[in-house]
Amino acid sequence: MRITAKQIPIIATLAVCLLLYGTAAIAFHDRGFFSVGVFVNFFIDNAMLGIASIGMTFVILSGGIDLSVGSVIGLTSIFIASAMDRYKLPPIVAIFVALLGGTVFGGGMGAVIRYFGLPPFLVTLAGMFFARGAGFLLHLESVPIDHPFYNALSEFHLALGGGIELTASALIFLATFIIAIYLAQYTRFGRNVYALGGNEQSAVLMGLPTGSVKMRVYALSGFCSALAGVVYTLGLSGNPSAAVGLELDAIAAVVIGGTLLTGGVGYVAGTLLGVLILGIIQTAITFQGSLSSWWTKIAIGVLLLIFILLQRFVQTRKLRTTAS
């Protein structure tokens, strides 16, 4: 099969992922880095980031950006915790309201972007401030969750045999991932997201419903953020200052996952790899012991730089091939 320009970033992602994983596996083989347990832990530890990144993938594919995801996670988690604590809401109801609220919040930002033509960057920036502030209004500090249903949910493990177990958060992450692939590859909505990000003007002239796609993309991201907030509460607390700055990690995961920041090109599976890469870096640095946590940030920055420059290269090459 011929490799096309748009596949270069995702191939690079895969290469980076394998390279990092292989290097870490060899370097820390004595401490059991190369084990199913450690691998499964990538999914458990990064479930929250992963779910938020999947929502972000759709937004970035459509040519937008969503800075509010971290704050929405914080708001959802504190909402669920305090709703159960203060108003004795049953957990299912609290979770349902939280997911609905996140979706409506995202859709609202999408509506402002759609109808008033404001830049997504600014609208979601306001959304970020707003959600964070609203979270603090609910409660200033972390609120513990103590409810039989929740305890059971957070204790839940799906045994895969061989002592390998998946937690509820990992399962939610994987389910979200599968549904996201369905949305992106097998629905008109998903394909319209690609078209919108590929060339908005063309999408309009092709008669695609670009306005409603735009709105729905932010609603989807809001839903994913709220779901990530639910995953946070599985740690049995809600915290208004949860996930500060997580939007940056999510954007990084999407870009490192090979999605073009200008939109139109990328895969949900790439984002999964991107999240894995971030997880591998973090775990490897923990395993290494003497390297400190800030190397994670520097490494992410360097990877971002490489992928953004790679994207520029792919785009200019594309221009040249179309011109000639």
Binding site: R191, A195, G198, N199, S202, M206, L208
Partner: peptide, 15 residues
């Protein structure tokens, strides 16, 4: 006015 990154087939049937 088509979407360059998508396949030929998809461009014909998009929407």
């Amino acid at each position: 006015n088509l979407i360059p990154h998508l396949s030929v087939a998809e461009n014909i049937s998009l929407g």
